[in-house]
């Protein structure tokens, strides 16, 4: 039985754009950040500026990342239903039940659940966790950045963190959260490839083009 698949516009331009800006900035932030924590390359001439450039690129990429996140957060309220913030909280309707089924499915303990067109409940929950980790990186990062000028704007915005944590602890959190994001990104890529193969909905292509292919009976409009 052959059915003609329906082409649905799922990921709007701001969603795709911020996704790829995030990919690039996280990649740059991780590599330069790792270098700042553990300078594995050494300069051999006084005139070189390796750490200087690494820090400059790190801080610039941090600004790019924050702006990208702000655009994405705005789009979570302004965009279509697939971009909505509501996907991060799979608590309504049959979502909790589907979430559990999905987890069991990944552990080979249940049948394959029917995935919707947008984020699945488990994906939504994972992105909530990632968002929390992003926030941790941004807050600890800007707090440490603010040390260069303790009476500046950033210290008044993020300096309260020093009342709770010491600077070495902030550095450790910033470091560990980077690694947590590395695992989550590994899992994200794996699951994306896996679901792409499983559903054959053009999931991998959708983050480039915005379109997915679904069976005609799948509900795509509210």
């Amino acid at each position: 039985m052959k059915k003609l698949l329906k082409r649905v516009y799922v990921w709007e331009f701001p969603v795709r754009f911020t996704h790829w800006v995030n990919v690039l900035s996280i990649l740059v932030l991780s590599v330069t950040g790792y270098y700042i924590g553990n300078p594995f390359m050494h300069a051999y001439k006084e005139s070189q500026y390796v750490m200087g450039w690494m820090r400059f690129i790190h801080f610039t990429a941090a600004y790019v990342f924050v702006v990208s996140l702000l655009i994405r957060l705005y789009w979570a309220f302004a965009g279509n239903k697939y971009a909505s913030w509501k996907a991060l909280f799979p608590v309504t309707g049959d979502k909790p039940a589907k979430l559990i089924q999905q987890m069991l499915y990944y552990a080979f303990l249940a049948e394959k659940p029917r995935f919707g067109v947008g984020h699945s409940p488990l994906a939504g929950l994972t992105y909530l966790l990632i968002l929390v980790l992003y926030a941790a990186e941004i807050f600890t990062g800007f707090a440490m950045y603010s040390l260069y000028n303790p009476s500046g704007l950033y210290n008044s915005m993020f300096g309260w963190l020093f009342l709770i944590f010491t600077t070495p602890t902030l550095r450790l959190i910033h470091h560990i959260v980077m690694w947590l994001l590395v695992y989550l990104i590994l899992i994200h890529i794996y699951v994306a490839l896996y679901v792409d193969k499983l559903e054959k909905s053009g999931l991998m292509g959708s983050i480039f083009t915005g379109h997915k292919f679904v069976y005609p009976e799948v509900k795509t409009k509210d």
Partner: peptide, 23 residues
């Protein structure tokens, strides 16, 4: 050392070693 000890992972274990291991 640059980073503080991570509690429960032994004195010489740094966050990066744990990070690479977990990755």
């Amino acid at each position: 050392k640059r980073l503080p000890k991570v509690p429960g992972f032994g004195i010489e274990t740094t966050a990066d070693k744990i990070g690479v291991g977990l990755a």
